[in-house]
Structure formats: structure tokens, C-alpha cells
Design a protein around this nucleic acid. Structure first.
Length: 459
RNA sequence: UCCCCAGUAGCUCAGUCGGUAGAGCAGGUGGCUGUUAACCACCUUGUCCGUGGUUCGAGUCCGCGCUGGGGAGCCA
């Protein structure tokens, strides 16, 4: 029976007979003894396998290449040398899958750019292994957080016909012939398409999430999201995962409170339950990472009105590249200044001018702002965007008319304001941005196993 | 999409003033009784991103293209 290396090391007992299986990271051979570092993905360190001339295939073991797959039977013993607590004295080494000298991963540091070209193999490296382990644990922690608060996990559609969420360009979903589609008035006739109308991949589950919140009170979505934007930055991907909670009978203050608890919970989770991998990130990826995350985990998040934020920026005397003026959106440089220089920690900016925000955000009584919030954190800037939603039908339709948004395709959304409408609020968090924030990784392409970005859909 | 930078051995990089390609690692062979990205000795490896131009001569200078990276915009 195979034992996972992480489990084996956690329950180490001298003299224990066991069998492990994994991939060779390194072979150090001399005439009479060879050391094989074996990794099965369960942890960072792997297991040192000691092979000696007593093995039937000792010569073959000495010639093993990095990357080969092995099954090893042996005895776990306390290691006499520094570097590891335990080691496995092999009695049988089965070579399951060879790896010759063309194997692209070497026993050395590679650039992330190079590793992206071998995305099919990079999960076997220390860094990407740690990132994808953390990603998995973190996804489970997200579900745990909401389950502890009795939120319903909602699956919103991936194929959608609502073209007007205002959250970016849609990927078109169609089965029409791309070369010669049926035409109506010179345009492709989507009435003859699979769904009988224009459809695309979802850019947000929020609108459907609101409908579910108006039945289950508290819900969240956590699923893939698609944006056909030609964004070429380290923070954007065409396919990413988004977390979107929505709470009925809740206002903007409740929304911010949930976001604060959520971020703090995930920071603590990473520090406490992923300590080995986090220590690796702190040492190898970003010096001071643990301290940064610890501060966020313990901080009280500041709340600041958009108007105050503008004043603070104007009074700062700092020369920004982009103008600072009431009515203009905050740029990345402003967001980072507020979080890093003004506050020195996470800060919510609340109540933005209605002109720069989406139609569904609740209009404040001042007539010029909406109940929107962004959570800004050091190093990244905006990590969460949310709002209280406009629950008053007349205000909502008036605003849609002002912004030129057609009501007809959103009849179902408007119905939710017709019967049993109530104040509700929610936010959106890009999962990859969260993983980047917690690992210190600088590029979104390195926190998704197989990233999709403009011109890149390989693997 | 806009601005800036880069592309040389399998990987990471150096290459001076334009004069004909070099280092570490990886790989190979041999050595080594406990190594820690093992170590020691020797050896192998090139479409200098592509294309057009300038020049007696281009890795080096110029144009165009492709690819990658950084910044911005859009945003999560």
C-alpha cells in the first residue's frame, strides 16, 4: 500500500516498512551509495531515498535522470546526516517511467518565462508545486468560510445571453458556420443559432447571484469567468475564477464587514495551515511576505469615503501621472498610494461618483454617489470590488435609461425588484489575484496551471 | 490597444570600437564510503529569433515582422 510522503514524514517512526511512489528531483551517486530525492507532490521537501549496492538494480538507480517515476519499498530510519529528519533505506526500487536527458526541467532555477513554455511539466517544480498546492487548499478554505456562515453555494450559468452586465467583452458562443453564417438583413442571424439568440461566456455571475440571494438570503458563487479583453498585463487572464457573495437584507456596511472577515480568514488560513509552502514563498518569492500577510490578518481595515480619498490625494503634494479630481476614477497609482502611504494597510474606499460605476449600484441620497466599495491592499491596489445594489425599481429603470441600457433583455432582473425586493449587497474577488497576493507571485500566468491570455490557449 | 526593454548552446547569461562565438549549469566518460541544486578531472553542444538593408566584413548598425517581459488602459 502506497504512503504519501507528507503523511509518512508527519507520522515518521523508525523501522517502519513502507512504500512510496513519486518523481526523481535529484540523484547523488557515488561508488557504493546513492541518494535519490523523491517528490510525490504532497509536500515541498520530498523524501531522501538511500540506495546501496545491495539493490539488484543499483547501477540503473545511479544512472536515473531527473524526472523519472519510481516506486520504492524500504524502511524509514532517522537520518544520520543534516538536511532531513528521516530517510528511506530502499530494499526495492522499481523504475516505473524513465526520463532521459531531453527532460526540460533541470536541477537548477529556471525563469518563470521558460516554465510557461512547458506548462505541462512545471507543476513538478518547487515553486509551481507550492503555488498549486496553496491554490487547492485556498479554494477549499473559501468554501469552508461560507459554509461556516450558512451561505448557499450557487452555480450560475457559464453560457449566458445577458450581454449588458457592463463588465467587459464577451466571448461569443455559437454553432453557426463561421465562414457562411445564415444572414438576416446582411448580419449573422443568431435566431438560427443553437440557443436561438446571441450568447457568450459569462463575465460575472452577479445578476443571477442576486436572484438567488432573494430566495436563500446569503449565497456565493465560485466559478470560472471569461473576459475577451485584449489585456496584456501580469494581472489579467481571459479565463479566471471569481468568488461573488451576495447577501439579502444587507447594506454597504454589512458588505464591507463580510469582505474584511473573508480576507482576514484566508490570510490566517494560509499562515496556519499552509505554513511550509508559505515559508517557502517568504524565502524564495517575496522577502517579508509572512509579515505582510500577518499584518493584514490582524489589521482593522480602514473605511474612507471616496471624497475624503480624493482630498487626501490632493493634499499629499505627490505628483501623480493621472489627475486627481472629484468625479474621476482612481488609478492604480492612487490606489496604492492610499493603501501604502496614507493608511499603511487595507482600506475600503466607499461611495464613488455614480458616473464611473455600474447601473445596478444603489444611488445614495446625495444624488451624486452610489453605494460602491473597493478594497485596496498594499502592493496590489484593488483586490475586491462590491456594492449595495439598487433595490428600488423606479430608481433602477431611471438609471438604466440614463445610461442607455435596454430593459427588455433584463426583464427577469427587473422582476426581482417588482416582487419582494429588499436591500442587498455583494462583492467580487478574483481568485487568482488572491493567490498572487498570498504567495507573492507577480504574474497571474504562474498561479493558474494552464493560463489563457490573448493569443495563448495551449495545453 | 499604446509606450519602453529584450531575443546568443538544452537552461541562465557574457560578448568591448563592426573583424568571424564563450562561461556557468545541464548532458557524456571516468573517479569518489553519507550526499543535500553533492564534489573532482576530462569531453560534447550554435539557423547568434526571422527577414530586408548598410558595409570589404554584421551577434554587434538601420527598417519591418514575430516572440517574450515591464509599464499604462480596461478590470477581477
Amino acid at each position: 500500500m502506497k504512503t504519501r510522503i507528507r503523511t509518512l514524514l508527519a507520522n515518521g517512526a523508525s523501522g517502519r516498512e513502507c512504500m512510496v511512489a513519486g518523481w526523481v528531483r535529484s540523484v547523488r551517486a557515488s561508488r557504493e551509495v546513492a541518494f535519490v530525492t523523491l517528490n510525490d507532490g504532497s509536500d515541498m521537501a520530498g523524501l531522501q531515498v538511500v540506495a546501496d549496492q545491495g539493490l539488484a538494480n543499483f547501477d540503473s538507480v545511479c544512472r536515473l535522470g531527473t524526472g523519472a517515476a519510481l516506486r520504492v519499498h524500504g524502511t524509514l530510519v532517522a537520518s544520520p546526516a543534516a538536511g532531513q529528519q528521516w530517510e528511506l533505506h530502499a530494499t526495492i526500487v522499481e523504475i516505473i517511467g524513465e526520463a532521459d536527458d531531453a527532460y526540460p526541467l533541470q536541477k537548477k532555477r529556471h525563469t518563470f518565462e521558460y516554465l510557461r513554455t512547458i506548462a505541462h511539466l512545471r507543476p513538478r517544480t518547487n515553486t509551481l508545486g507550492a503555488v498549486f498546492r496553496l491554490r487547492s487548499r485556498l479554494a477549499q478554505a473559501v468554501h469552508r468560510f461560507f459554509a461556516e456562515r450558512d451561505f448557499l453555494y450557487a452555480h450560475t450559468p457559464i453560457i449566458t445571453a445577458s450581454d449588458c452586465e457592463g463588465a467587459g467583452e464577451l466571448f461569443r458562443v455559437t454553432t453557426l458556420d463561421a465562414v457562411a453564417p445564415p444572414l438576416a438583413a446582411g448580419q449573422p442571424d443568431f435566431e438560427q443559432d443553437f440557443f436561438g439568440q446571441k450568447t457568450g461566456l459569462t463575465v460575472s455571475g452577479q445578476l443571477e447571484g442576486e436572484l438567488l440571494a432573494l430566495a436563500f438570503s446569503d449565497i456565493y458563487t465560485f466559478g470560472p469567468t471569461f473576459r475577451a479583453e485584449n489585456s496584456n498585463t501580469p494581472r489579467h487572464a481571459a479565463e479566471f475564477w471569481m468568488i461573488e457573495p451576495e447577501m439579502a437584507f444587507a447594506d454597504l456596511a454589512d458588505d464591507a464587514e463580510l469582505a474584511e472577515e473573508f480576507i482576514r480568514y484566508l490570510c490566517r488560513f494560509a499562515l496556519e495551515e499552509c505554513a511550509d509552502d508559505m515559508a517557502f514563498f517568504d524565502k524564495q518569492i517575496e522577502k517579508g511576505l509572512l509579515e505582510r500577510i500577518r499584518q493584514v490578518a490582524e489589521a482593522d481595515f480602514v473605511r474612507m469615503d471616496y471624497g475624503d480619498a480624493i482630498e487626501r490625494l490632493q493634499r499629499s503634494g505627490t505628483a501623480f501621472s493621472y489627475p486627481v479630481e472629484w468625479g474621476l476614477d482612481l488609478q492604480t497609482e492612487h490606489e496604492r498610494y492610499l493603501s501604502e502611504q496614507v493608511v499603511g494597510g487595507p482600506v475600503f474606499i466607499l461611495n464613488y461618483p455614480k458616473e464611473i460605476k455600474a447601473f445596478y449600484m444603489r444611488q445614495n441620497s446625495d444624488g451624486r454617489t452610489v453605494a460602491a466599495m473597493d478594497l485596496l491592499v498594499p502592493k496590489v491596489g484593488e483586490i475586491i470590488g462590491g456594492s449595495q445594489r439598487e433595490e428600488r425599481l423606479d430608481r433602477l429603470t431611471t438609471r438604466m435609461a440614463e445610461m442607455g441600457i435596454s430593459q427588455e433583455p433584463l426583464w427577469w432582473y427587473l422582476d426581482s425588484r417588482r416582487w419582494g425586493s429588499c436591500p442587498h449587497a455583494g462583492f467580487g474577488l478574483g481568485f487568482e489575484r488572491l493567490v498572487m497576493y498570498l504567495t507573492g507571485m507577480d504574474n497571474i500566468r504562474d498561479v493558474i496551471p494552464f493560463p489563457r491570455t490573448p493569443r495563448h490557449a495551449e495545453f
